[in-house]
Amino acid sequence: MSVTIDNVKKIAKLSKISLSDDEVKSFLTDLNKIIDWVDQLTDVDTDKVSPTFSSFGLEEDTNQRNDVIKDGGCRDAIISNAPNSEDGFFLVPKVID
């Protein structure tokens, strides 16, 4: 499969990355090279293979939390890095539904 200009523009949009025309071209070249190379995976027969979900052993007991409140109440810390905030709210350009 090869990547098209439209693919690049669409994935840039989905990724929320704006690209100049030159960047679109250079990403197109890069992605095509990479995609060509990873296409060798099609040589592998995976018909009866299930995908890996994690390299963490599923036989291990996974961590779960008890239903207790032991976090939150740290608004100042939560807000401390915010580029734009007021009265303990994060501010963003107006969003209209």
Partner: peptide, 22 residues
């Protein structure tokens, strides 16, 4: 009592951003 993936409270009507963990 607490959220699906964190230990902050689910109580309704609390002051904004006070029931927020990292």
């Amino acid at each position: 009592q607490s959220k699906l993936f964190s230990g902050s409270s689910t109580l309704f009507g609390s002051e904004h951003n006070t029931q927020v963990s990292f």
